[in-house]
Design a protein around this nucleic acid. Structure first.
Lengths: 256, 256
DNA sequence: AAACTGAGTTCCACATCATGGAACTCTTCG
DNA sequence: CGAAGAGTTCCATGATGTGGAACTCAGTTT
């Protein structure tokens, strides 16, 4: 563990140890927790109160014992949902990268950006940029535009700040963006040609959950010189099929 | 929230806010986190390092961005597993309480004690003690003895400290306890008559997972004067059936 | 290829906050 | 009814957490 030698914050360390104690014991009282941590019970009480304020710990009644709280499930849920999606989709993202030879990405919306969760490089992609973990502007990417396309007008207003220009081809007009999102809804996929970077083309399709809601998107991207109009004609159906297959695995039915 | 007015620990509060930020954004850098918390980036770095030491946060590479870590899943897992079990079993514990009229409990082993997860009182049980959340000695309860009965000799040695006497009927000899655990394995259930408290009788049966491992137990308990030998003859099969049904729901096959 | 920029990381003097101790409240038990 | 023990509150003190300066490193620009 590379950073275990870095200085830690003692009170944070103690609070997290309380969580570990409660995971192990199920429930514990303040005095018991104080004994486990070898601190005074007023110290233990304050640490537990802080955890309780964040819902990571709950108390049975007003003066009872403590146990782990639902706030932990909420935090863990954010992680599990993303990990599950990545794992569930992996065979398909791999196959799509193999079939197209290009870079395949999986993204979700995180507030005002597209969050890249996974990336598989195809055989033609040599030194491709690693997008995983990065927040990329929604309006300038095929993934982002797919994710935006299913938002209500209110949600769309929230999700968009000012539309920054990255290339001459970047959409910076909200009216123009709305029009394009409508087109994406109709055709079922989105394109971004030289919009984030000159020379970069991507196609993305929506991934749906059991209810039909768009929860993620999958894209195929590569240099514009390679992803010509003819080449896109072949890649677009492959991307749509991959997105459909992932959606199917998540419980979505083909016909709505 | 009853204790939100209690003093909290600022640095713990900040660390937990980092977890919430990462749940929301997916990933974030130190400088970004510092901006969100309105602290210096060296402060943010130290807080993140502490979270990382406990595996609640992970870093992409040596100098990359941070995201929530698997340590969170481990903590949440302890909570979810217990909640899932309680919810899955609830219709059956309710039915058993209704059928027998007595108090029904669900327990798991937490280190050296039986941790009571759920309790449903029957019609005959008026002012019964609420066991939920409590750690009760394993050797002196029917639930505890069931949980002990499936341990290996090494695990048994670890799980037992000294066997405290609570009543004249409490088993305090390890040799005698081992003998009784063998009998429990044979007959498939355990009895505790006046062992924890004079006048308290309980029968417990094992709950198994898909692999057949004992992961919990269910008990019927009531006053000794009501749970006579004749009455137990009726209650024991009901308790066994309930345990079997819960096990079945968890994926266990009747015939191994 | 070199310089610049910005993010992550380390170290340290100082001030703020976390601590333990005393005391209080409340529940359970004898 | 009193004792015991757990949870909770308040406060003076000092230990720890902080911000600032400086460093390292990777990516970008010239």
């Amino acid at each position: 563990m590379s950073n275990s030698e870095a200085a830690t914050v003692q009170s944070v360390d103690r609070a997290l140890t309380i969580l570990e104690v409660l995971a192990r014991l199920g429930t514990a009282g303040v005095t018991e927790i104080a004994a486990e941590l070898e601190v005074h019970k007023s110290t233990a009480f304050r640490l537990v109160s802080t955890l309780e304020a964040h819902r990571l710990v709950e108390q049975a009644g007003d003066r009872g014992r403590y146990s782990l709280g639902v706030g932990l499930l909420r935090l863990a849920g954010a992680t599990t949902a993303r990990l599950d999606l990545v794992q569930e989709a992996r065979p398909i993202t791999r196959q799509l990268a193999a079939d197209t030879g290009e870079t395949v990405n999986l993204t979700v919306r995180a507030e005002h950006a597209a969050l890249y969760l996974d990336q598989v490089a195809g055989s033609s992609a040599l030194q491709s940029h690693n997008w995983v973990g990065q927040h990329i502007p929604l309006h300038a990417t095929s993934n982002g535009k797919v994710l935006l396309s299913e938002l209500t007008p209110e949600q769309l207003a929230d999700a968009l700040g000012s539309l920054a220009r990255f290339t001459p081809a970047t959409i910076t007009s909200k009216a123009q963006l709305r029009k394009e999102l409508e087109q994406i809804r109709e055709q079922g996929y989105s394109l971004a040609i030289d919009e984030l970077e000159v020379g970069l083309t991507a196609v993305a399709a929506p991934i749906r959950n059991a209810h039909g809601d768009v929860i993620a998107s999958i894209s195929v991207s590569g240099p514009t010189f390679r992803l010509s109009a003819e080449r896109l004609d072949a890649v677009i159906p492959q991307c749509l099929a991959a997105a459909g297959e992932i959606s199917h695995r998540l419980g979505w039915s083909w016909r709505e």
